[in-house]
Amino acid sequence: MSPTDTPRLLPWASPDGNQCFLVSDGTGYVSRLADEMEEAQLDSAAELLAEAHRILDARTWTPGEIHLLAVELTSSLADVHRVAESRGARLLVPDDAVRDGDEAPGGRDLSGQGSGLRLPAEAFG
């Protein structure tokens, strides 16, 4: 299985809130845009985490500040979770890491697809 066989979960949703996927070799414009957006989301999460530590360490917060922090952390966690799902689903593992009988969603048997690298069933999570 090659990376182009696995749809990439993109770091944004459609206008109606559905997940967006891309099938490509990872070198096109949309792939680069997705990489840049994922990097920005991870950078934002790191900055927010530092801010959360600062606010919580000060021990002088108001209920409104804690509520806003919780909202922002929840949003950031959702972004980071999506990045982790996307990247995890595209990880390649050696053939010997896939056990006989492992199945991906939709009933695809991962153990009998020939030689090469394959994704474990857990990657489709």
Rank of each mutant, 00 (worst) to 15 (best):
M1W: 10
M1R: 14
M1C: 13
T4N: 15
D5C: 10
T6N: 12
T6W: 15
R8D: 06
L9N: 10
P11V: 02
W12G: 06
A13S: 10
S14H: 04
S14I: 01
S14K: 03
P15D: 09
D16R: 04
G17M: 01
G17N: 02
G17W: 09
N18W: 05
N18Q: 09
Q19Y: 13
Q19H: 13
C20F: 01
F21D: 04
F21K: 00
V23T: 12
G26C: 14
G28E: 15
V30M: 10
V30I: 12
R32I: 09
A34G: 07
A34V: 06
D35S: 15
E36G: 14
E36R: 14
E36H: 11
M37V: 15
M37Y: 11
E39S: 12
A40G: 11
L42T: 07
D43A: 07
A45R: 01
A46R: 03
A46H: 00
A46Y: 01
A46E: 11
A46L: 03
E47K: 11
L48T: 01
L49G: 06
L49Q: 03
A50F: 11
H53K: 08
I55P: 00
I55H: 01
I55V: 05
L56R: 00
D57N: 08
A58H: 00
R59F: 04
R59Q: 06
T60G: 08
T62R: 02
P63I: 07
G64V: 04
E65R: 05
E65V: 04
I66S: 08
I66C: 03
I66Y: 07
L68P: 00
L69E: 00
A70M: 02
V71A: 05
E72I: 04
E72M: 08
L73E: 05
L73C: 05
T74V: 01
T74D: 10
S76F: 05
S76A: 04
L77Q: 10
A78K: 07
D79V: 02
V80R: 03
H81F: 09
H81Y: 09
R82F: 03
S86P: 12
S86A: 06
S86N: 01
S86T: 02
R87D: 04
R87H: 02
G88M: 10
G88K: 08
G88S: 05
G88Q: 08
A89E: 11
A89G: 14
A89K: 13
R90K: 15
R90D: 15
R90Y: 09
L92I: 05
V93R: 12
D95A: 14
D96S: 15
D96R: 14
D96Y: 12
A97I: 06
V98P: 06
R99F: 14
D100Q: 14
D100N: 13
G101N: 05
G101A: 05
G101Y: 04
D102K: 06
E103P: 03
E103C: 11
G106N: 02
G107K: 01
G107N: 00
G107P: 01
R108E: 10
D109Y: 07
L110A: 11
L110K: 10
S111P: 06
Q113Y: 08
G114S: 06
G114Y: 06
G116H: 08
L117H: 08
L117A: 15
R118A: 15
L119K: 14
P120R: 13
A121G: 15
A121F: 07
E122V: 14
A123C: 07
G125T: 08
